[in-house]
Design a protein around this nucleic acid. Structure first.
Lengths: 134, 134
DNA sequence: AAATACCCTACTTATTTAATAGAATTTATA
DNA sequence: TATAAATTCTATTAAATAAGTAGGGTATTT
């Protein structure tokens, strides 16, 4: 997992602790979670575009969760930042791509095995939520 | 998974079909499995260093499996080429690293969740073998 | 001796990652 | 209404990794 994605999880967990009452500023999250501030800004912006958080500009502004922590799935966030959950493009649900070197996907043994692994991982990732990382 | 790792699996599967009788040349594997030949050479060399295949030099030489296909674990090969199976260094068994931004690993919620995911994936990866991808 | 095939080191090119920089915009409040 | 605080946006950069390519060296067979 990329640092960006990990930082996103930490930021979400931070906001979840305040949910639904208060909002938090980038600088506060950056300091308490040990995340480079300007890098965190980009991440929070992505989370906003993804519809997970919202923000208030200006003095006393900040970020806050849009949805309850237990409704934000780990898998959704992972996909937003790191793309496919599957280890091979040809077994990916949301980022599917055909392998150029593989003539027949149905007969491909790699496909079969890594589909099982994806199924397993996906199930857990769509079952766990931000509230599980608090 | 990197292309290198995927090619390694395909090469092993190719060799497994011939096991234990004959050996295969790089050029043959490259052609039939659609892998760039010079790239495959490096991969087979890594597999040799890893103790999974052996080779015979000179005219009529080639590569062959050292171990039976059903004893070569998917996870071992994955680790050889792509390193950690875990999604976070702090939950990795063989490639463990402490997170610099995390003060207390035991209390870390991310650690907890991604340890579960690793356990699951690891179990399957050490259970499946090259014979499962034939 | 020649051809074949593995062995080894180095190089290249493109992409991604992990930031950093700086200015623009919005809002609260003194 | 000016100022400070905070998000928003665009661009740049340095380092690492991925995916190959190149070319010669070494061993073996015929």
């Amino acid at each position: 997992m990329s640092k960006k994605c990990k930082y996103a999880f930490k930021a979400l967990a931070h906001l979840a602790k305040r949910y639904p009452d208060t909002h938090c500023q980038t600088a506060e999250i950056a300091r308490l979670e040990n995340i480079p501030r300007k890098f965190l800004e980009l991440i929070l912006l992505d989370l906003k575009k993804g519809g997970f958080v919202n923000s208030k500009q200006g003095a006393g502004g900040g970020y806050y969760l849009v949805k309850a922590p237990e409704t934000i799935l780990i898998g959704e966030i992972y996909r937003l930042f790191d793309g496919a959950i599957a280890l091979l493009p040809c077994v990916s649900l949301k980022f599917y791509e055909k392998c150029k070197d593989c003539p027949d996907e149905v007969a491909c043994g790699l496909n079969r095995v890594f589909l099982q692994i994806r199924d397993q991982t996906l199930k857990l990732m769509l079952q766990k939520t931000v509230s599980d990382i608090l």
